[in-house]
Design a protein around this nucleic acid. Sequence first.
DNA 1: GCCAACGTTGGC
DNA 2: GCCAACGTTGGC
Length: 158
Amino acid sequence: MAHWLMKSEPDAFGIDDLAARPSQTEPWDGVRNYQARNMMRDAMRVGDTVFFYHSNTKAPGIVGIAEVVREGYPDHTAFDPDAKYYDPKSDPSDPRWFMVDLKYVRHLRRTITLTELKALGQRDPDGPLADLPLVRRGNRLSIMPVTEAQWALILDLE
DNA sequence: GCCAACGTTGGC
DNA sequence: GCCAACGTTGGC
């Protein structure tokens, strides 16, 4: 079972929104980045666990845990001219964009902030967190793999 | 709201 | 195929 970290802006869709959904499940649509697309299309498996990260907010950080309940399938919002992330170059017979379904698992007892993760990564340059793309300068990936060691270390911070 | 970093687009 | 221009992300 693999682990991931997925970013979302809480103003648009936060962990509380996921928890409030019917079946506490939501398709992760709107991703229009090839690296992130590839991970959803090719690598994420049912049962994988996900750190839910809040970006573009006062104290960005990991706020909860979700799990993959449906593996990569075409993101149909790309076909809809009225949708926010419509992409005319995505052909329904050869879809360009994919998504997975995520199900809410739980909130963390506290937010593990980006500041904290960065500080730990710097304090221990040989430790697991130093390699987490999230704490690297200029990182813009909205979906990234999390190693077993990173997952365990971060959960221990809770 | 600013702006650094980085991905994408399109002219050539 | 190069690379300048442009758009987006996301921390601060």
